[in-house]
């Protein structure tokens, strides 16, 4: 098991290094620069522009800038935002819990509904339920997040008034963040109704963000289950007289879960991508919106640092998924 873990870790290190290069080059290949944006329509003289570029160190050769960046990173310094003048790590740490909270809830919804839907669809192949699940999954997968979010807001917040429109908690409540996770902080605050308010604010964005992963998980579970259900050992188990619950729940599901877990791991990246739009629509103060704003403002340090931290998290999750394979199926860790 240790060898398996070590091999996986070896792949992560060069990937991480590659990400630093991609993040660094990516933001600099975009046209325009942060200094020009600072001036807006007003413009700025060439001399002042050159002076500010020099003050920020953007006039140095790109390789030198990259070297300085790596040196800073080695010391644990992710840089300071050009715009807000705040350390990147501090900004990230402030906003990250909101994205995690939203993503976890979205993933919970996706798994909680996606797995059973896919399983039942597979066992009742060709039924109305199967067709409904697959049509629903395709629709969910195809829906633009922005449109879907607005539709839900207009329906449930605007017309029915069941949920709040946006934000993380009602403006009624005020308390200092402790963990950054609103559900936990609202409980810790001891303020009556705060937790319920935080929950009600989470419902719509979690549904919107969880829709695509839900669709993917349901489809993947269905196809994996169909494949497994046609295997000889399932037929044998049935022939031996095992009940359908035991055959599906124990023998089939465990084997079908491997590709499903792979997909769930990959959905973490999808969640971060979807968070950008979801956070914008629902005024959710997370890292998705922060990244987009940073890109538009050409905040080099924020984009580099943010991309690197997000990539590190996605890599970590995928590494964890790889390790989970090894636990679920010992064959994998022995043959890989």
């Amino acid at each position: 098991m240790f060898g398996y873990f070590f091999k996986k870790l070896l792949v992560v290190v060069p990937t991480f290094f590659g990400v630093t290069l991609v993040a660094f080059v990516f933001i600099r290949t975009l046209p325009g620069d942060p200094v020009m944006l600072l001036a807006g329509e007003r413009g700025m003289s060439d001399e002042r522009h050159a002076q500010l570029m020099a003050e920020y160190g953007f006039d140095k050769p790109i390789l030198v800038q990259y070297g300085i960046y790596l040196k800073q990173l080695a010391g644990g310094d992710f840089g300071t935002s050009i715009i807000t003048r705040q350390p990147i790590l501090q900004e990230f740490a402030t906003l990250f819990p909101a994205t995690v909270e939203l993503s976890l809830c979205a993933m919970f919804i996706a798994v909680f509904f996606g797995l059973p839907a896919g399983m039942i669809a597979a066992t009742k192949r060709g039924s109305i339920f199967d067709h409904s699940v697959m049509t629903g999954a395709l629709t969910g997968y195809s829906m633009p997040i922005f449109w879907w979010g607005l539709l839900l807001i207009i329906m449930f917040s605007g017309i029915l008034g069941w949920t709040p429109v946006s934000g993380r908690i009602s403006m009624l409540y005020y308390f200092e963040p402790v963990t950054g996770f609103m559900l936990i902080d609202s409980l810790l605050s001891g303020q009556e109704g705060a937790f319920v308010s935080a929950m009600s604010h989470l419902v719509l964005p979690a549904i919107v963000l969880g829709t695509i992963p839900l669709a993917v998980i349901a489809r993947q579970t269905r196809s994996a289950m169909l494949e497994v259900l046609s295997e000889d050992y399932v037929r044998t188990a049935r022939a031996k007289g095992l009940g359908p619950q035991r055959v599906i729940g124990l023998h089939a599901l465990r084997n079908a879960l491997i590709p499903v877990i792979t997909v769930i791991g990959l959905q973490v990246g999808v969640l971060f991508a979807g968070a950008i739009l979801t956070e914008t629509i629902f005024s959710w103060p997370g890292i998705g919106k922060w990244m987009v704003d940073s890109i538009f403002r050409r905040d080099y340090s924020a984009v580099q640092g943010g991309l690197l931290l997000i990539a590190a998290i996605v890599m970590f999750v995928n590494l964890a998924v790889d390790l989970l394979y090894g636990l679920i199926n010992p064959q994998i860790r022995h043959t890989d």
Binding site: L150, P164, V165, M171, S283
Partner: peptide, 19 residues
Amino acid sequence: VFAITPDASVRYQKLKAGE
């Protein structure tokens, strides 16, 4: 209180909802 709401359509929904 400034409730930061980037999307104009959502801002209007919040205004209508009294938020």
